[in-house]
């Protein structure tokens, strides 16, 4: 994790005494960390998460590109197969949007003998978010890293998910505490990979490249990239405008350069935002929209990826 020139990274044994650490404001912090003792929760999480067949993380370096919208609709799409159990975990601790998008805002989490019960949207679709633990819509979660990490640990260890086929994890923007924690806690179990969301403009892509570097650093496989808000067709004159212009070739060019698959492009459709505000799936609201068709195609590709991955895994065992 060399972030600044010569920095050995906080997890290195050289953290603190290394030459580059001289004068660094974090020298004391990094040095005092030492080799961290293994958290006993990791073993418990491993046991709990091993029975989950597929785990997919939804990531983006940039905020507001549609991670939660995508996560919610990936969950809806996968849950259309009634034989599959789907769980959606929202680890955006400071800005949980999933309860609103799934139409279950204000729901509470109940404690049972086997842990916290998630909130069920359908018989085969359950959701967990910090949003269910807040006392009202103005309640802010003003937490520093360690508290956020503790919450994520609890979500993985203490929620009674039951037997699930797909676990989808929606994340906040960035490459910090939440991301490191989820990857570290799930490290000992099998994660299918990450779906990375971006918008077409370079200002977004430059953050997304950082997220891709993050995935490489922590050895998280990348399922592919989704380009969201890709063009807008005026409902009146039907002419398409690039509101967020792909000045550097958009996600397509980035994927080519970095050798990652582009899962698809989703156009802007004002009805998507509206459905999300109302907590309804736009798959049922606007089945004929080009955005819905594009989404369905992307979900199919993710299913194929997971299926393929699963068989490969079985063969290698």
């Amino acid at each position: 994790m060399a972030e600044l020139p010569g920095c050995p990274g906080p997890s290195s044994a050289q953290a603190g005494p290394a030459a580059a650490c001289q004068g660094c404001p974090n020298q004391g912090l990094c040095a005092s960390g030492g080799p961290a003792a293994l958290d006993p929760a990791v073993a418990e999480i491993k046991e709990k998460m091993e029975i989950v067949k597929h785990k997919i993380l939804v990531l983006s370096g940039k905020g507001g590109v549609g991670k939660s919208t995508f996560s919610a609709h990936l969950a809806h799409g996968l849950a259309e197969d009634e034989t599959k159990q789907v769980a959606l975990l929202d680890i955006d601790i400071c800005g949980p949007s999933i309860p609103k998008i799934m139409g279950i805002e204000g729901e509470q989490v109940h404690q049972s003998g086997s842990g916290w019960s998630p909130v069920y949207v359908e018989d085969n679709l359950s959701v967990m978010s910090v949003g269910f633990l807040l006392s009202g819509p103005d309640d802010a979660v003003i937490w520093r890293g360690p508290k956020k990490n503790g919450m994520i640990k609890q979500f993985l260890r203490d929620v009674d998910w039951g037997e699930i086929d797909y676990l989808i994890v929606d994340t906040p923007p960035g490459t910090s505490d939440e991301h490191l924690s989820i990857v570290q806690y799930l490290n000992s179990t099998h994660v299918d990979g990450a779906v990375i969301i971006t918008t077409p403009q370079e200002v977004s892509l430059q953050d997304v490249r950082k997220e891709i570097s993050f995935c490489h650093k922590v050895k998280l496989p990348i399922i592919g990239v989704v380009e969201n808000m890709s063009g807008f067709v005026c409902p009146k004159c039907k002419i398409e405008t690039q509101i967020f212009p792909p000045t550097t070739g958009g996600a397509e060019k980035m994927c080519q350069n970095l050798n990652i698959s582009l899962l698809g492009k989703v156009p802007l459709d004002p009805r998507i935002g509206k459905s999300c505000d109302q907590g309804q799936s736009f798959f049922s609201e606007i089945p004929e929209s080009p955005a819905t068709l594009s989404y369905r195609h992307i979900i199919q590709r993710i299913q194929e990826y997971c299926g393929l991955h699963h068989t490969e895994e079985k063969l290698s065992n």
Binding site: E3, P10, P25, N26, S176, D177, K210, V218
Partner: peptide, 23 residues
């Protein structure tokens, strides 16, 4: 301005971020 390469990810937990902000 402090990154060696523009695509470098700053994978830092809170305490390190706080120290840089103070600086």
């Amino acid at each position: 301005f402090l990154l060696e390469k523009p695509d470098d990810a700053v994978v830092w937990r809170g305490p390190k971020k706080n120290a840089l902000i103070k600086q």
